Simulated assay, not measured.
Amino acid sequence: MPRLARPVPAVAAALSALALLVAGCGSNALAKQPPFPRSTIQANAADPSEKPITGSPTTGDPVDPAFAVDKLRLLDPCKLLDDDALKELGKPDDAVPGGFSRCSNFMKDKDGKDLSITVEVGQTVTSEIKKADKKIAGYRSYEQVLEGSACFVSVITQDEPGLAFTVQIGYKDGDGCVPGRKVAESVVALAKGKNASRTAAKGSVITVDPCALPSDAAVLEATDKSPRVYPYGLHNCSWVGDDAEMTLDFRGGFVPKDDKFDSKQTEIDLGGVKAYQVQTTTSFPSCTIKWVQLRGEDNDGEVVEVKSAGPKKAEFDRCAKAQSFAKALLPKLPRA
């Protein structure tokens, strides 16, 4: 199994996501860790008032067969940040993987100034599709600029639900969209080849569609009513009812020593599978359960996480819901 990078702690605002991107250009080793999938609100995320995406990522037709979702899941994002392409922009550093679908390079431009580049495969996009007014390598693209700090270049690979290759550039000393376009063009070319593909390890969830995995009965039990389905990227799915929601997330990356994911976690038994449970008592209480699906080299591995949540007024046992949902998933997951 390839080594994966340790995720940073979750933050709750788009500005924090941007701060991580720009801070990655510095020398602080911790700042160089790319955001973990879904751990931050993306700086180019859709307006929450927009109509939600429904259905699974596999329900849409890709703009090119090379970008079918099952192929995107097997792309190694670090192999899409080609050293030859990056050397045209300056001096690349080591690639820093971030989960299944993200990779960063916190490099220097030709003048020795900080230039951070992150590519994400299969990022969820909504408004970007309608706003896509440019083309890169023959495919529709959209650029968003955050003044004086970053550029996001999205190359659309699928319309419904919307998916894209997104290149994020942190560059305070120049127009980030210029290197962003060059990197995006290289990413598309490499993604269509064979050298960027990887082989899933036995027992890996990297190829599993999270929206298609649970049974209808398990989803209905988790949400009480027929929910709306929200795929997010390639490895996350949420089912949202009126007063209850359930989220399933597959993550690749750092597995802490002794599985200490959270200081407040409680060990539970999911019918022979050791898992860890954490409850919150905010205005939107939740219960999160996670377990190690696969262990790789050192502290690398894969984690499955389920989360039951709902408004405070909704009185139901969130941990009981999460445990029931998790137990229903276990027989369907790959085995090492």
Score class of each variant (00 low, 15 high):
residue 157 T to W: 12
residue 46 A to T: 12
residue 62 P to H: 10
residue 30 L to Y: 13
residue 252 G to F: 09
residue 57 P to R: 03
residue 155 V to Y: 05
residue 136 I to K: 01
residue 145 V to R: 11
residue 28 N to F: 04
residue 152 F to N: 06
residue 257 K to P: 03
residue 27 S to P: 03
residue 45 A to C: 11
residue 204 S to C: 12
residue 330 L to E: 00
residue 207 T to P: 01
residue 171 Y to L: 10
residue 117 I to V: 15
residue 320 A to G: 03
residue 89 L to Y: 12
residue 50 E to T: 07
residue 130 K to N: 11
residue 70 D to S: 14
residue 95 A to C: 09
residue 224 D to V: 08
residue 122 G to N: 01
residue 163 L to I: 06
residue 313 K to G: 01
residue 205 V to C: 06
residue 201 A to C: 11
residue 25 C to Y: 03
residue 55 G to V: 11
residue 172 K to F: 13
residue 133 D to V: 00
residue 184 A to D: 01
residue 38 R to E: 15
residue 288 T to I: 08
residue 74 L to Y: 02
residue 91 K to P: 02
residue 165 F to P: 00
residue 83 D to S: 10
residue 200 A to S: 12
residue 78 C to R: 03
residue 36 F to N: 01
residue 141 S to P: 07
residue 90 G to V: 14
residue 213 L to Q: 09
residue 175 D to K: 05
residue 130 K to G: 15
residue 164 A to C: 10
residue 316 F to C: 03
residue 67 F to K: 00
residue 136 I to E: 05
residue 168 Q to R: 07
residue 210 P to T: 11
residue 289 I to D: 09
residue 244 A to C: 09
residue 230 Y to F: 15
residue 201 A to H: 09
residue 323 Q to E: 13
residue 131 K to D: 15
residue 277 Q to G: 02
residue 52 P to H: 08
residue 313 K to T: 13
residue 226 S to Q: 13
residue 148 G to H: 03
residue 154 S to C: 03
residue 216 D to N: 08
residue 31 A to L: 15
residue 318 R to N: 07
residue 271 G to L: 04
residue 127 S to V: 06
residue 143 E to Q: 10
residue 191 A to T: 04
residue 83 D to V: 07
residue 293 Q to F: 12
residue 248 L to N: 06
residue 55 G to M: 13
residue 241 G to I: 05
residue 137 A to S: 12
residue 270 L to Y: 10
residue 96 V to A: 14
residue 86 L to Q: 06
residue 158 Q to H: 05
residue 68 A to M: 04
residue 118 T to P: 00
residue 308 S to A: 15
residue 264 K to D: 15
residue 149 S to F: 09
residue 221 E to T: 05
residue 83 D to M: 02
residue 233 G to I: 13
residue 335 R to V: 09
residue 296 G to I: 07
residue 141 S to R: 03
residue 179 P to Y: 04
residue 326 A to S: 14
residue 328 A to D: 14
residue 64 D to A: 13
residue 153 V to I: 13
residue 58 T to D: 14
residue 47 D to K: 04
residue 48 P to S: 10
residue 317 D to M: 09
residue 113 K to W: 01
residue 260 K to R: 12
residue 210 P to Q: 09
residue 195 N to C: 00
residue 13 A to F: 12
residue 39 S to T: 05
residue 184 A to N: 05
residue 182 K to Y: 01
residue 107 M to Q: 10
residue 159 D to W: 03
residue 310 G to V: 14
residue 299 N to M: 08
residue 47 D to M: 07
